[in-house]
């Protein structure tokens, strides 16, 4: 059992590293790479936004509650208007914690 566990942890670690590494050296192996570069660069951005959106709304596959959603959307609004990072983080946390204090789930 422990052996299978260690083997599985190794697979996760090595596989994750392989994704990271091959992404960074892809241009050497894909002919005419520059044609796709802009697309792949934008893909990084879209994936990050999607990660943020999913983490904002779901917790273990179910709705995470309004407090976090409203807090993060408020933070996102400030970020869009280029308020600095510390301000954005402070407001996101403050609104979420405040709503929970008021009994919003």
């Amino acid at each position: 059992m422990t052996l299978l566990l260690i083997f599985s942890m190794a697979i996760l670690a090595l596989g994750t590293f392989a994704f990271r590494y091959f992404g960074s050296v892809m241009e050497q192996y894909v002919p005419d790479f520059q044609r796709y570069e802009e697309l792949l660069n934008n893909m990084g951005m879209v994936l990050l936004i999607s990660v943020a959106a999913v983490v904002m709304i779901y917790e273990a596959g179910a709705f995470a509650g309004w407090a976090r959603c409203i807090g993060v959307v408020t933070a996102g609004g400030l970020a869009y208007y280029r308020v600095n990072i510390l301000g954005v983080l402070f407001v996101g946390t403050f609104v979420t914690a405040g709503l929970r204090l008021l009994g919003v789930p």
Binding site: I49, M56, E59, R68, G71, V72, G76, G92, R100
Partner: peptide, 12 residues
């Protein structure tokens, strides 16, 4: 409200 930090950061 610490769970709001990670998504807020990415958006920021």
């Amino acid at each position: 409200g610490l769970d709001a930090l990670f998504p807020s950061l990415i958006l920021a």
